[in-house]
Nucleic acid binder design. Structure first.
Lengths: 156, 156
DNA sequence: TTTCCGCTGGGCAATCTGTTCAGCAAGATG
DNA sequence: CATCTTGCTGAACAGATTGCCCAGCGGAAA
């Protein structure tokens, strides 16, 4: 559940050089290979490290436009809306939230014009009452986790 | 810039079994090892595959609460606010957007009570006029990219 | 004191990687 | 039509890494 400094350094190393091997890590960290291996196993079975899936850049795939849509759902239609949104490839992420909207989703599109098509497809479903969209211009802090890992490692 | 079916299958395999090697991939895909290697190199230098960083689960680290905050910024304070937010470990992501808000950020916290502390720290900065927060309850579609990859691979 | 647990340092066979090579087919170019 | 370029194949090689095992050691808990 909680991680120590060594765990933190392992994650840090992996984040910086994902292709690094266990042996090389043990050299850099100054510990035995078995230790690194055991820590990694533990981190993975703990669920702290979910996996090492490839990070694919939607922009490089031809989807340079990102947007966030806040959706208002008709009462009782939640399950259907979820299924509908899950079937749209351009919906990269979906959350149900408290607050003024009911759901928040991340969308990508090939262009601003194409975003219209995506939104039409997203909201072209009966259970969705209203959608308000915010187009992403800049991304000053791309998805990150390292600072949090470092903080968690310090607090041991 | 664009990917074909083989590229798609490579990414798919990597997503499903991240620890798979180039040799095993070539066997599964029925192509030569050199081909897979060349494709992978190309995908990475293209930027389609950004990397293979470890996916760390904030919940397993002790931060089970996720929220999205929409921020309104005082004109001309954008740069300062960006720097301020980047210094908060619990800010996992930050975007500047069009629409009613000026920025949208993803936050995590140790609990709902702790979220108050995080928000106080986030908005306790001069350039931020207003913040409205939505707490995430469910996550019906966790961050995903595979459907988009498959679509991009088909369209070749 | 005794037990448990994690780390160390070592060794082993099996496997994979990085790299290079020549051959071949298809498509583009002149 | 001849030539070139590009991408894929199948193979080879040395070097490195992995998965797995073991015994010993020290600190912390019972």
């Amino acid at each position: 559940m909680s991680i120590d400094r060594l765990d933190g350094r392992i994650i840090l190393l992996l984040a910086r050089e994902p292709r690094i091997g266990v042996l090389e890590m043990s050299r850099r960290l100054g510990v035995a290979r078995g230790t690194v291996q055991a820590r990694l196993d533990r981190l993975q079975s703990n669920g702290v490290i979910r996996g090492f899936g490839p990070e694919v850049d939607p922009a490089a795939l031809g989807y340079p436009v990102t947007a966030f849509a806040t959706l208002q759902i008709r009462q009782g239609q939640g399950a259907d809306v979820r299924a509908h949104l899950a079937s749209v490839p351009e919906v990269l992420e979906l959350h149900t939230t408290t607050g003024s909207g009911d759901m928040l989703c991340r969308l990508v599109a090939r262009s601003n014009a194409d975003l219209q098509r995506v939104i039409d497809r997203v909201v072209g479903f009966d259970g969705i009452v209203r959608a308000s969209t915010a187009i992403v211009m800049e991304n000053p802090v791309p998805p990150r986790i390292i600072p949090l890992v470092e903080q968690a490692a310090e607090e041991t």
